[in-house]
Design a protein around this nucleic acid. Structure first.
Lengths: 225, 225
DNA sequence: CTCCTTTTGTAAAGTAGCCGACAAAACTTA
DNA sequence: TAAGTTTTGTCGGCTACTTTACAAAAGGAG
C-alpha cells in the first residue's frame, strides 16, 4: 500500500489533525492495513506486539469472553473509532476479539510503542488523546449507570435512540438506521436475554414506535419513543 | 499554607515523580487545600473553574444523582487517588458530589487549566497521565462486566476481596479491613438492595468466611472466600 | 429450487432479587 | 441515662427477567 494513501487514512481522524505531515509519516512507516468481510474474526494476538487500531470503514463489535465462556459485547465501533490498547498498557489476561458486522471493513493499525514515541514528542497530541480516552470513559460510565438503574425496556429505547442519533439518517423527526445487528447482538448490548429483546422490539413495533427488519430500523418520530 | 508543604503533598503522588521542583511549584502556586470531616459533602460547583483533586488522607465516595433522584456510588476513593475532571473536559449536566467517609480527610486541588499547561510542557507527564486515565477506565470496564454477568453474591465477594487487597492489613491469609462503609454503601457499590447486601453479609459470616462489624471486617482465609 | 443454518417468535415454568414494612440493635446527642 | 437517629436484621409478596424448549421464517449455498 502506498504511503500517500496511508497518510490520508490517518490524517482523516480528528485526533491527528494537529500533526505535521512528517510526524504522520513517522507513524505511517509502520502502519498496517487490513480489509475484512462480514463474520470475520480479528484476534488481538497477545504474542504480537500491542497495537492501536483505527476503524476506517464499516462496523465491528468487540466481544470479551470470560473464564466460563460467557460472551459480552463490550463495544460497537463505527467508522473513525480507535480500538485496541487504548490505555497504553497491554493486559495479557483479558480475552477479547473483534467481529466484523458489515459487509466490508477496513482497518489500519500502528504499533503502540510508535504511538507512545509520537505522544512524547507531541504534547498537544497527548492532551487530545487523553481527552479522547476520557470521553470514552465518560460514555462508558453513562452506559453503566443506565444498566444499574433502568429496566430492559428503558435500556433498549435509549440504545435505539443513541444508535439513531449516531448513525441514522435523519429526516425531521424520522430516523432510518441501517441495521447490521441481530436481535441477539442487541440483547447482549443492553444486557438482557435474546427473548426479552425480541419481545420488547415487537412490542415497540406494535405500538408503531419503530419499524424493524433485518436490513433497517425506522423510527417514525423519535420524540415519541 | 506554606508552599513547601504543598509541594510535598503533590510530590508524594507517583504521577508527579517525574516533575522537577520548579514545575511542581508552578502548580502549587494555585493549589487549594482543604480539610473535611466525616459526613461532610463536597460539591464540585459547576460555576467554579474546573479542578482536579487529589485525596491525600482518608476516604470519600463519589455519588451521582440522576433526574429521578436515584443515588449511585460511582467510586470509593482512597489516599492518593485523583478525582474531578479527569477527562480534562467539564461536563456541566452531570450531578455529582463527594461525601466524606472517614473521620478526617485532606484534599488538595489545582485548576484544570494549569494542569493542562503543565501537561503540554511536560510530555512524559502527559504520557503517564494518559496511562493513568486508561487504567482507570480498565478498572471501570472490569466492574461493569462483573455487574452484567455475575449475581449479587459473587459481586459482593469480589468487592470484599478487592477491598481487602487494596486496603486491608495482611497477616498470611488473614486480612483485616477497617470498615468505613455502611451496608447501604456496600449495597450501592455492588448494585443491589440494602436488604440483599445484609442477607449476604450475614450468610458469609455464618459460614465463618468473614467476621463483620461496623468498625472492621476480618477475613480469616481469603483463599476460602 | 432444495437443503441447511441462522435468526426470530412464542410459551411456560422457575427464580433472583426488589420493595414495603417493621423491629431490634447500635451509635449520638444532650 | 434517656431520647432521637442511623444502621442492621428479617419476612413475605411480587415481578421483571431468565431458562428451556420448540417452531416458524428468512437467508445462503450448492
Amino acid at each position: 500500500m502506498y504511503d500517500e494513501l496511508k497518510y490520508w487514512y490517518l490524517r482523516d481522524h480528528k485526533l491527528f489533525w494537529t500533526l505535521s505531515m512528517s510526524q504522520i509519516k513517522q507513524l505511517c512507516i509502520i502502519t498496517g492495513f487490513k480489509k475484512a468481510n462480514k463474520g470475520d474474526i480479528i484476534y488481538f494476538s497477545s504474542s504480537d506486539l500491542p497495537r492501536i487500531y483505527l476503524l476506517k470503514k464499516g462496523n465491528i463489535k468487540i466481544v470479551s469472553v470470560d473464564e466460563e465462556g460467557n460472551e459480552t459485547i463490550k463495544e460497537i465501533l463505527q467508522k473513525g473509532d480507535l480500538f485496541g490498547e487504548l490505555s497504553l498498557e497491554n493486559d495479557g489476561d483479558v480475552n477479547e476479539y473483534a467481529k466484523v458486522l458489515t459487509d466490508e471493513v477496513s482497518i489500519c493499525s500502528f504499533l503502540l510503542s510508535d504511538f507512545e514515541d509520537l505522544l512524547v514528542r507531541n504534547p498537544s497530541l497527548a492532551l487530545s488523546y487523553t481527552k479522547f480516552v476520557g470521553l470514552k470513559m465518560k460514555r462508558f460510565k453513562n452506559n453503566y449507570s443506565n444498566l444499574v438503574s433502568k429496566d430492559a425496556r428503558t435500556r433498549l429505547i435509549s440504545f435505539i435512540k443513541d444508535w439513531a442519533e449516531r448513525e441514522g439518517i435523519q429526516e425531521g423527526k424520522k430516523y432510518t438506521i441501517s441495521n447490521y445487528l441481530t436481535q441477539t447482538d442487541i440483547a447482549q448490548i443492553i444486557c438482557t436475554s435474546r427473548q426479552t429483546a425480541t419481545l420488547l422490539l415487537n412490542e415497540l413495533e406494535e405500538k408503531n414506535l419503530i419499524y424493524y427488519n433485518r436490513k433497517e430500523i425506522i423510527i417514525e418520530d423519535i420524540s415519541k419513543l
